[in-house]
Amino acid sequence: MNIFRILGDVSHLLAMIILLVKIWRSKSCAGISGKSQVLFAIVFTSRYLDLFTNFFSIYNTVMKFVFLMCAYITVYLIYGKFRKTFDNENDSFRLEFLLIPVTGLSFLENQSFTPLEILWTFSIYLESVAILPQLFMISKTGEAETITTHYLFFLGLYHALYLANWIWRYQTENYYDQIAVVSGVVQTIFYCDFFYLYVTKVLKGKKLSLP
C-alpha cells in the first residue's frame, strides 16, 4: 500500500460520492450516462467476486463493499427513483460495441484461464472503456454540468494516481500486473481530452461546452 494508491482510492470514492450527491440533491440525473454507471456496476461485480474468498485487509474489504454499494445505488437512482429525469435519447452509446470486444479479449488475453481470473480480466478491460458512454453523451449534448465535470475529474485522477502506484510498486516491489497497467494507460488516455477541457475551461470558471 502506498500514498498513490490511497489517494487514488480516495479520489475514486470522492468521484462516486460527488455523483451521488449531485443526483440526490438536484433530484435529477440529467447529463449523466446511465450506461456508464451500469458498466461500472458490472466492473465492480465481476472484479470483487473474491470478496469472500480472498481477504487482503479490512481496508480492502470495506472499500470493495462501499464501491459496490455506491455503484448500485447510483444505478438505482438513475433507472429507478429519478428515471423520469433520465436523458435516454442522448445516452445512446451501443454497449454491445464495448461488451463484445472486452469479453472476447478477456478470453484471449488473461493471466490464467480460470473463471475468477477471466472475470477479473473482463472487469479490468471493461473499466478502461466504461466511461466512454458518458464522454460520448457529453460530446453529443455539447456540454456538461460543472458538478459532472468534477465527478469526471476525480474519476480520471484516480486512474492517473493508480498509474503512479504501479510505477511505484514496480520500483519498490518489482511487482506489476501487465493487464492492469496496459488497460489503465488506455483508460487514462481517454480522459486526457477531458482533462484538457477541464483545466482550460472549468477551472477558469467557465462552463464546459464543447466547440
Binding site: 473474491d50 480472498n54 480492502n60 472499500m63 502506484n165 492492469a180
Partner: peptide, 10 residues
C-alpha cells in the same frame, strides 16, 4: 509471493 499480491488492488 508475487501470486499473493495479485488483485490486492481495488
Amino acid at each position: 509471493d508475487q501470486e499473493s499480491k495479485r488483485h490486492d488492488e481495488l
